[in-house]
Amino acid sequence: MTMIPVALILCADLTNGLAQVIGPMLIGRPVEGVWHTSIVVRGREYFFGGGVNITRAGESPFGQPQKKLKLGMTQLPPEIIRAIAEDLGQSKFRQQDYNLIKNNCNHFSHTFSSLICGEGIPESTGILNQHEVLLDSPMGPQLAPILAAMESQLGGATVQGFGQAGAQQPS
């Protein structure tokens, strides 16, 4: 069987560059961005927002990736990869389970990648705890309302756009 790469896609800095400017003031160290992530494998992009979504790579509402990180390789056929994504979408990553701090797109990307290739998001990237670091900063309490607004928007993201009901998948 052929080995297929599994890539972590850093689709969008959700702050549009603002994290780089104010990050050092807020948490006392440089911040590259606050990332939305997805997983790309076999030409499909898998992400969590309004449930688990599957679309053609690069066609999510988050746009073209700003960065890609190879996580590992898989031999799993497309139907098994899709079944794993759908199972996650019916258990831990349902639309109502979205939480910007504890159960977001990055947690999905980590879990899904771990299941399909045995490698999740490396801890060294800081992606999995980026929101916790922000909230634990001196300015964290003042940022909570902004994060709450972001949660409702991002928690409703589907392949159709933001604030759309239900996860969508290509035919």
Rank of each mutant, 00 (worst) to 15 (best):
M3I: 10
I4N: 10
V6T: 13
V6L: 11
A7E: 14
L8T: 04
L8E: 04
L10R: 08
C11G: 13
A12L: 15
L14C: 05
L14M: 12
G17K: 09
V21P: 01
G23I: 13
G23Y: 12
P24D: 06
M25H: 11
L26P: 06
G28N: 09
G28M: 09
P30T: 13
P30K: 12
E32A: 13
H36I: 10
H36Y: 12
H36F: 10
T37R: 10
S38K: 03
I39C: 02
V40G: 00
V40A: 13
V40Y: 02
V41D: 00
R42Q: 14
G43A: 08
R44Y: 13
Y46R: 01
F47H: 05
F48M: 04
F48R: 00
F48W: 07
F48E: 02
G49Y: 01
G50D: 02
V52K: 00
N53R: 01
I54A: 04
A57R: 01
A57Y: 03
S60L: 08
P61C: 03
P61D: 03
G63H: 03
G63V: 01
L69R: 13
L69V: 15
Q75P: 00
L76V: 03
L76W: 04
E79F: 03
I80M: 07
R82D: 15
A83V: 01
I84Y: 06
I84P: 03
I84W: 05
E86A: 12
E86G: 00
D87T: 14
D87R: 15
Q90S: 10
Q90K: 14
S91H: 13
R94K: 15
R94D: 07
Q96V: 12
D97E: 08
D97F: 08
Y98G: 03
N99V: 03
L100M: 10
K102G: 11
N103V: 05
N103Y: 09
C105H: 00
H107T: 06
F108L: 11
F108K: 06
T111N: 02
F112Q: 02
S113F: 12
S114L: 14
S114D: 08
S114P: 00
L115W: 01
I116K: 08
C117Q: 10
E119Q: 15
E119H: 15
P122S: 08
